[in-house]
Each structure stands twice: as C-alpha cells, then as structure tokens.
Design a protein around this nucleic acid. Sequence first.
DNA 1: ACGACCGTTGCAGGCAACGCAACACACCCG
DNA 2: CGGGTGTGTTGCGTTGCCTGCAACGGTCGT
Lengths: 252, 252
Amino acid sequence: MSQSVERALGILPLLAKGPAGLGDVADELGVHKSTALRLLRTLNEGGFVYRCPDGRYRLGARLFALAAEAIENLDVREVARPHLAELNHATGHTVHLALHQDDEVVYVDKVDSRYPVRMYSRIGRPVPLTVAAVAKLLLADLPEGERRALAHRIEYPRYTARSTPDAEAFLRELDLVREQGWATDLGGHEESINCLGAPVRGPGGRVVAALSVSAPRVVVPAEGLLELLPQVLRTAGAISQDYSGVQEKETA
Amino acid sequence: MSQSVERALGILPLLAKGPAGLGDVADELGVHKSTALRLLRTLNEGGFVYRCPDGRYRLGARLFALAAEAIENLDVREVARPHLAELNHATGHTVHLALHQDDEVVYVDKVDSRYPVRMYSRIGRPVPLTVAAVAKLLLADLPEGERRALAHRIEYPRYTARSTPDAEAFLRELDLVREQGWATDLGGHEESINCLGAPVRGPGGRVVAALSVSAPRVVVPAEGLLELLPQVLRTAGAISQDYSGVQEKETA
DNA sequence: ACGACCGTTGCAGGCAACGCAACACACCCG
DNA sequence: CGGGTGTGTTGCGTTGCCTGCAACGGTCGT
C-alpha cells in the first residue's frame, strides 16, 4: 500500500537475523544505497535500529521497549497471572499462556518449572501451530470457514513422528479438541515433551486465550500428566470467570 | 528524514498504550483519516499491527517475534546466562543483565528470585537511567564528552527521596562508580528495594554490559546485600573473561 | 426511519522520496 | 607511496508516491 513504509518494515526482519551493513540492506531490499540510508536513518531516529560503533546496524532498544509495553497491556495476561502461578505451584511444571493473532499463536506469559529440566520457550515466540496444545485450542474455536482456510494455508513440518501430518488430520484433531474442551501435545513438537492445555473463554463464550502445562517425559509420563486434567480445567475456568467478570481496562 | 515512515513508526508507541480506532490514530498523528488508514494497512500487511474483531488496532505478533529473535541474537546474553543462573542459585536473589543503546538502558535477561517477594521488572523494559545500578555502570564508562552531554540531556525524576536529584550529582556518582568498579541503587527507584551491580567488560576493556542483584529490604538489609560484593564482582569477571575469549558469532 | 459516526474508496495535485553520480574516507596491496 | 577497491555520505533533478479532499456505504443508537 505504502512503498517506503513497506520497505522500512522489510528492513527489520533482516536485522533481526543479525547485524548488517548499509550495502547488505540495500541489496536485500533491491533499492539504491542512498534510499536504504534514508530509511535506516528514520528507523534510527525512532530508536528502532541501533548503529553499532563499527557502522553496522542492529535492532534497537525501542523495539524491545514497545514489545514489553504491549505485552503488559494485554489484559488477559494480568488476570491470568496469579492463576498460572498457582497452577505452577501446585504441579511444579512449566505453565504457558498463549494468544491468537493473524496466522500465529504466541506465548504471552510463562511460569517456569521447578524441575531442573526445563522446556525451551520464550515469551513472544510464535508457537508451532500444528502440534502445540495451546494452538489447537485457539484454532479449534475459529468459525468453520476460517478454520478450513487456515488449515489448508499453513505448513505441516514433521518435527517428530507424532507431528500432525496434514490439513485433514489437523481439522479432525481440532474437532476433537473443540468437543472435549481440552487438548494435548504428546511428543508432537519434541519427542520427549508432553503438554496438556485448556481454553480461556471471554464474555461471549469465545476462546480468547489458552493455557498449558508442559513436562518432559523423564519427569512425568504422559498418563501422569493427564491426571492433572481436572486441575488444568479448573484453572482455565477460574481465569475465564475473572476475565468475563471485570471488563475494565478499556481505552478512555 | 522520511515522512511516511516517520509517521508509521509514530503509530506503534500509540498502540502500545492500548488498542485504538482509526480516528484516534489519525487525530493523534495529525493527519487525515485516509492517510492513517493507508499507514495502518501497510503495518497490518507486515504483521506489525493486528486488527481486532471490533475494528480497532493493536500491536501485532510480528513485533513480538522480532523482539524475541533479536534478544536471542544479542551474544553477550548467551555467554552470561549460565553465570547469572549460578549467581541466582548462590544468593537466591533476582539477577539482571542490561545493555546500553542510544539514550536507553534495557534489561536483556533476568533470573527470578526464589523469594516470594519479587522485584517488578521485565526483559526489554527500559531501566530508569538516573538511579539503577546497571545504568550507572554502563554510563560511567562513556567517554567524558558523551557522558556530560547525556547527563544534561536526560531528566531526573524523583522516584524517592534517595533518587539522584540532578546532572551534577549524577556525574559525581558516575565518577565514583567508575573508580570503584561497582555500583549500588539503595532505594533510589523504589524505597524498599536495593541493588548491587558490577560491569561486564569486552575485549577492549570497555564496559559492554552490566549485571545486578536486587533484593527487597524486608528480605535482606542493605548491609547484607553489600556482603555479596565479592561474589558479584567474581561473576562479572567470569562473564567478561568468557566473552573476551571466544569472539565467535560474527555474521558471515 | 432517521441521523450520527466510523471506515472506506477514487481522484488530482504537489511534494517527498527515489536513483543517479560525484564525493569523502579507510583500508589493502602492489 | 600511490593507485585501487570497498565502504558510507551528500546534492540534485525528476517522477511517481503519498497525501488530503469529498463523496460513498456501512452499522450502530435513539
């Protein structure tokens, strides 16, 4: 829609991969060096990119600040926080909270396991759509048409032998998840890790977020994890109730 | 430098504060609605802005993904990680790692306290420049001219009675910090919280990062925290050594 | 049913952003 | 020591992108 803005935004993913010089950026964008320079300057003035002492460019502090600020303003998160902590306290496992936006599902909060062996994840990181329990929960609640379209649009990487293989299998899985009201990921992303998740519902009954507990097989076998189901469902229900109740925090 | 990009970037901080409608954005930017619409559209196509079902705009998933990716690529962080964890394990307190960019200092990593009362902070969040121990450490190492300029450019909010009051006091404090090789924040940001920090030095001897231990007064009094100084210095030294040694991770 | 409000869509003019080319600078190698 | 190659930077003319306007089509309330 807007050429210069489009180009400027295209620079950011480039720099996210690592620092780059002016020439690299210009080549990658397919524009003249002077153009790239002007774009980088504007980004720099805004604090979105940072100029290394050696002249190369990196992503700037502003980006982190923005992401941090926005994440704090995601209201579900605040409501959920204490419940997640309690679930973590009761089970000892890693607890995640995730939201759905566009074609991505992202973790917006996390309480780490007490056990030494932890799952690798990070707030803000996109979740593997086709296998993660939280992703299934969020996508299962989409209206029929959108769900089908999305299922056929996305890719199905084979992380492990238990990963969801294709769109058909994924849609069947989503139907199951929607019906039973909870979801699992039994070694679908990493062979040795199991997850169990439940949906958080908003005022209209729609799924607005999802939470999950994750544990390595070496700590708890799959059957053991499933025994936590009542507890997980109870937590999700409690958050839903809290969230539906107080609807403050609207922009004035 | 580049008008449209500048305006587009200006939208992001607006949305970070909370969701906003098209009209709000246009007013705030001082442009026509149609202009704002086009900018928002480009941001949306890039995934930086997300359209709520109710038509309002929020920051998008892409931004979080970028921030997460960039933070992981900050090489000091990887080197420091195990040392921070060890320091946390030994002391039980919250440990932070911070970097300096432009006029900001940001936390790039954190290991939470084992105690129930935790300090409020978040990765990516800008640090109060005038009081935080890590900020003093990073700014104290700037070349004389830059340091003076910055000291006079920034503001001096009175968070508490112990906050640094003005540029003169701040510069004196920085001299002291540089000389002694460590820094404190004794209730300068929040009355009840004390911090103790030390610098991480790169190959050239310049300060490239800073770490700190933070504890509420109710858990450990200031004197008790200061007893940890040898341990904190040792940790910072170890990270410096590791970091100076292996200088890999350069972009090919 | 009506009005008020918000988001959206062509259109035409003006200026901002583009590419070009020349410059400044550091570095390497003969 | 000097030419050559690789940076990043600046000034300038032109074009085409972006802008603001005004009119249209929704969706609420009342």
